[in-house]
Computed example of a mutant assay.
Amino acid sequence: MRSQSGVKKMLKPVNILLVGVGGQGTILATRVLAKAAQDAGYDIKVSEIKGMAQRGGSVVTQVRLGQKVYSPVIGQGSADVILAFEKMEALRWLPYLKADGHMIINDQAIPPVPVLTGAAAYPDDCLARVRQAVPQTVAVDALNIAIQCGNARAANVVLMGLLARRLPIDKATWLQALRQRVPAQFIEVNLQAFERGYNL
């Protein structure tokens, strides 16, 4: 599904699950993805699930794009790509990935409330368990890359750059979507973050 100029459009819908926790920019990433897909001429359906998003709760977005898409719902075992902004969320949503699907993970741990209160333990083998189940797993320290670009909050856009390489949408279309969805004062940092992710 790698994007390049003149690439033919996909014949069947692509299912993408974006998972993270509140405050990581999952919703902004979804809006950039939706804009890029729409501008590329795809039909797109989006469903957002926010669980205490402002308090660090789980945030999940289901995105389906294709020539014609009738429902935003992605069932278990049917996601082509899971873009995980936090590594325990990657493990939590692993059952939704296809057998030959791709997993893109931000190698960052954000302990949920039960862990912070001592009611549960954060698994220390999240990445190992995901990699064992999914050969096509890419894990990056998106937070550190974003900090190098000048703003830790751009980690979501680093991950978007990685995702962009796996979708049949031209790079210029992604950049235009970023310019239209990111506030002007943050656009240069985000464009740099996208380039870093895209070229990883």
Results as ranks from 00 to 15, higher is better:
1 M>F: 13
2 R>Q: 11
4 Q>D: 12
5 S>Y: 05
5 S>D: 08
7 V>I: 15
9 K>V: 08
11 L>I: 10
12 K>P: 00
13 P>Q: 07
16 I>K: 01
17 L>V: 14
19 V>Y: 00
21 V>C: 10
22 G>L: 01
23 G>E: 05
24 Q>P: 01
24 Q>W: 01
25 G>A: 05
25 G>Y: 02
26 T>D: 01
27 I>S: 02
28 L>N: 05
31 R>Q: 11
34 A>F: 01
35 K>C: 07
37 A>N: 06
39 D>A: 14
39 D>W: 10
39 D>Y: 04
40 A>V: 09
42 Y>H: 07
42 Y>I: 05
43 D>L: 02
46 V>D: 02
47 S>A: 13
48 E>S: 13
49 I>C: 02
50 K>N: 15
51 G>R: 09
52 M>S: 11
53 A>C: 09
53 A>P: 13
54 Q>W: 01
54 Q>A: 11
57 G>W: 05
59 V>M: 03
61 T>I: 12
62 Q>A: 13
63 V>S: 04
65 L>G: 07
65 L>D: 03
66 G>N: 11
67 Q>F: 03
67 Q>A: 14
69 V>M: 02
70 Y>H: 10
70 Y>P: 00
70 Y>D: 13
71 S>T: 14
73 V>K: 02
75 G>C: 03
76 Q>W: 00
78 S>C: 06
78 S>T: 15
81 V>P: 07
82 I>R: 09
83 L>M: 13
83 L>D: 07
84 A>S: 15
87 K>W: 14
89 E>L: 07
91 L>P: 03
93 W>T: 04
95 P>F: 13
100 D>W: 12
100 D>R: 13
102 H>P: 00
106 N>Y: 05
106 N>P: 09
109 A>R: 14
110 I>P: 00
110 I>E: 11
111 P>R: 03
112 P>G: 09
114 P>F: 05
114 P>L: 01
114 P>T: 03
115 V>D: 04
116 L>R: 12
120 A>I: 03
123 P>N: 08
124 D>T: 10
125 D>C: 09
125 D>H: 08
126 C>K: 05
131 R>K: 15
133 A>L: 05
135 P>C: 08
135 P>R: 09
138 V>C: 12
141 D>V: 07
141 D>Q: 14
142 A>D: 10
144 N>M: 12
149 C>V: 07
151 N>Y: 06
151 N>E: 11
155 A>P: 03
155 A>N: 06
156 N>F: 07
157 V>M: 15
158 V>D: 11
159 L>W: 06
159 L>Q: 09
161 G>E: 10
164 A>T: 12
167 L>W: 07
169 I>Y: 06
170 D>P: 01
172 A>G: 15
172 A>N: 14
175 L>V: 11
178 L>C: 07
178 L>Y: 04
185 Q>Y: 12
188 E>D: 15
189 V>M: 13
190 N>G: 13
192 Q>W: 00
196 R>Q: 15
196 R>L: 13
200 L>T: 10
